[in-house]
């Protein structure tokens, strides 16, 4: 009996003392955190991908609260959650959400085995960074994709994979959250985050080769040679030429695909258009031929009858439709 009593008293006393100590310690060393940070953190996706530029969702949450205290959430964006999550964050913080257009990762190289002849054989650690440190890689292109899949390894969303036939990575639009991990992983800055565009339709230059024309032409069949035709063709001033390679500004591009028609190297690519540019061009050519034939017939008729003016067909008509 006595033993039991002693045990109970001792244990009880230890418990009590420990509780008191814990109470005071937790008071003394309490970390004062804004309660809103926890709330914001809750609505964030929790993937800790770092796509927002902060170390994980916790960092993003505190940055949001800080920014809200300074009056604006501008420049903060969760690429994973998109506008929905940012809207929620804004409502928690009593702010207005700044709309940010959704983006997607785009691979700007199409130097497949077929397009880009292999001039050397790499023999070593199979990561892009190692090949990049070694030199131009297996091909004559100093800027193109190395195909070892550092971007694949970096993707936390299983959204980018090397196509085994081309050896070039392909982005799965459905899965891509535009966190930018692949962009950072690529030692040659081939992958870029671009606006998804209206109806997901977008146009981009699929080459980053900075060599001058002849060298670029030798290295790859679909390299940009900086001829500048697309720049002249663009009505919206969206295409610029820097470092021997043309670049389409995704903010300005209206996805008219006029540039694709003139590119002699076929290194401008599109996505999610109902018809491929070749089909469009073929159809256009057909219509043009038909129109010409018609015009010819009409002219002949005119010559004969000297009446009935020929109907005028604008070649830009289909482009305008695409907009």
């Amino acid at each position: 009996m006595n033993v039991i009593l002693t045990a109970v008293i001792v244990l009880g006393a230890v418990g009590l003392i420990a509780a008191v100590v814990l109470f005071f310690v937790s008071k003394k060393f309490a970390v004062k955190e804004d309660p809103r940070i926890a709330l914001v953190n809750e609505v964030l996706p929790g993937a800790n991908c770092g796509g927002c530029g902060f170390p994980g969702c916790g960092g993003m949450a505190s940055a949001c609260v800080k920014a809200a205290d300074q009056g604006s959430l501008e420049g903060l964006n969760c690429p994973v959650g998109g506008a929905v999550v940012m809207g929620k964050v804004a409502s928690i913080l009593g702010m207005e959400a700044t709309a940010s257009d959704p983006k997607v990762a785009v691979v700007r190289c199409n130097g497949s085995c077929e397009n880009r002849p292999r001039i050397a054989e790499y023999d070593g650690l199979k990561t892009c960074r190692a090949v990049h440190a070694c030199g131009a890689g297996e091909t004559g292109c100093c800027n193109g994709c190395l195909g070892c899949g550092d971007c694949v390894a970096a993707c936390k969303f299983d959204a980018i994979h090397i196509n085994p036939t081309t050896g070039i990575p392909e982005v799965d639009e459905e899965k891509c959250v535009a966190c930018g991990a692949c962009v950072k992983a690529c030692p040659r800055a081939i992958i870029e985050l671009r606006l998804k565009g209206k109806n997901n339709r977008r146009v981009w230059v699929g080459c980053v080769n900075q060599d001058k024309g002849p060298a670029a032409m030798k290295a790859c069949k679909v390299s940009c040679i900086a001829c500048g035709k697309c720049v002249k063709e663009c009505k919206f001033d969206a295409i610029s030429l820097t470092g021997n390679v043309s670049y389409i500004d995704d903010e300005k591009c209206k996805a008219c695909r006029a540039c694709m028609k003139v590119c002699p190297r076929e290194c401008i690519y599109d996505a999610n258009f109902p018809k491929s540019i070749k089909e469009v061009m073929a159809a256009e050519a057909e219509r043009k031929a038909a129109a010409e034939a018609k015009a010819k017939a009409a002219a002949e008729a005119k010559a004969q009858a000297e009446s009935a003016p020929a109907p005028k067909v604008s070649p830009t008509q289909p482009k305008e439709k695409e907009e």
Binding site: C134, G135, A136, G137, C142, D211, K212, A215
Partner: peptide, 11 residues
């Protein structure tokens, strides 16, 4: 005055 592939492997 152009570019050449030098020992680094780059132009």
């Amino acid at each position: 005055i152009d570019t050449v592939v030098d020992a680094t492997g780059y132009r």
